[in-house]
Simulated assay, not measured.
Amino acid sequence: MDTAPSERAIQPVFRFAPSPNGYLHLGHAYSALLNEALAAAAGGLWLLRIEDIDTTRCRPAFEQAIYEDLAWLGLSWPEPVLRQSTEQAAYRDALARLDAMGLLYPCAASRQDIAAAVARREEGGAVWPRDPDGAPRHPGLVERLSRTEAEALRSRGEPLAWRLDMERALARIAADDSPLVWTRFTAGGELSTVAAQPERWGDVVLARKDIGTSYHLSVVVDDARQGVTHVVRGKDLEPATDLHCLLQRLLGLPTPRYLHHDLIQDQAGEKLAKSRGSTALRDLRAEGLTPEDLRARLGFAPRHS
Rank of each mutant, 00 (worst) to 15 (best):
P78D: 01
A126Q: 15
L95M: 13
R97D: 00
S85E: 08
L103C: 07
P132M: 14
I114G: 07
S85Y: 04
P129L: 14
I114H: 06
E87T: 02
M101W: 00
V127D: 03
P129V: 09
T86I: 04
A119Y: 07
L103M: 09
D99L: 01
P136S: 14
D133E: 15
Q84L: 02
L82T: 09
I114N: 04
A100G: 03
R111F: 09
G125K: 06
A96Q: 13
R111K: 11
P80I: 02
A96C: 05
A126S: 15
E122N: 12
A116Q: 15
A109L: 05
G125Q: 14
C107K: 09
R111V: 08
G134M: 07
T86P: 02
L95P: 03
D113Q: 10
Q112P: 02
G124I: 04
A117R: 12
G102Y: 03
L104E: 00
G102F: 00
R92W: 06
A100K: 04
L95N: 02
P129H: 12
G134N: 10
G134S: 05
A89V: 02
A94L: 05
R121N: 08
R92H: 11
G124Y: 14
G134V: 06
R130G: 09
A100W: 01
A126P: 13
D113Y: 05
S110P: 03
R120G: 10
S76I: 07
A90V: 03
G134T: 08
L104C: 01
A115F: 03
Q112C: 00
D93R: 14
R92T: 05
D93T: 06
D113G: 06
Q88V: 07
L82E: 04
G134D: 12
A94D: 02
A119Q: 13
R120S: 09
Q84H: 13
G134Q: 08
D93L: 11
